[in-house]
Design a protein around this nucleic acid. Structure first.
Lengths: 97, 97
DNA sequence: TTTATAGTTTTATGATTATCAAACAATACT
DNA sequence: AGTATTGTTTGATAATCATAAAACTATAAA
């Protein structure tokens, strides 16, 4: 653990809680957790019914918090949950969703 | 568990996460949890440095979500955490704070 | 090369939020 | 009665947020 943390653990925790406070983001996170593997944004869109630009907006938020990973293949982007990070920061949280 | 829930568990969870997403509220909740007993608003104010009206505003939010209890004695108000409710809804969450 | 698909960014908009000063209500103290 | 204390409410303000349409980028397919 780094001593000099510009973002303290508490601040990151608060951002994770923020991520989970919105219905759309909650569904995204919950979905990614329960399916257990990465999903294409489009595939996600079919399960979480929100406009694609809103989806993109939320996915950026999650990416910036650092709780998702994104992989690009062709013109598809696959999103997955950074379970390790979440589990390290807030052990047991994911299974509560 | 009641079948007819105007506020689903998921909605309430999201509100709890919302409560924890603000630095002031996070401190209030964390403080109440760690001291383990009720605190006067004034006493809380000494530990969580925010304006008294802002404090009152946040405490109302927590009360409305239903995760705090308030007891009035004379001109003092004592706030405590509704641990049971939180623990039932999100077991293990509090110890992550 | 044209067209379709996947996703992002921009822009605009309305809603929600956090903050604090000021006024207020209620109780306790002198 | 007057004053101090404890906390709430109101009102104003600035900031952040969620949403969606439209324009855009990049890749794949025809």
């Amino acid at each position: 653990m780094d001593i000099k943390q510009l973002n303290t653990d508490t601040e990151i925790k608060q951002r994770v809680f923020f991520a989970l406070s919105d219905p759309g983001r909650y569904k995204i996170i919950s979905m990614l957790y329960h399916v257990g593997h990465e999903m294409g944004c489009n595939e996600l869109n079919q399960h979480v019914e929100i406009d694609k630009s809103t989806m993109s907006y939320h996915l950026r938020t999650l990416r910036e918090i650092g709780i998702t990973n994104t992989r690009t293949q062709g013109r598809q982007k696959y999103v997955s949950l950074n379970k390790e990070k979440i589990e390290t920061l807030l052990p047991g949280l994911l299974k509560l969703l």
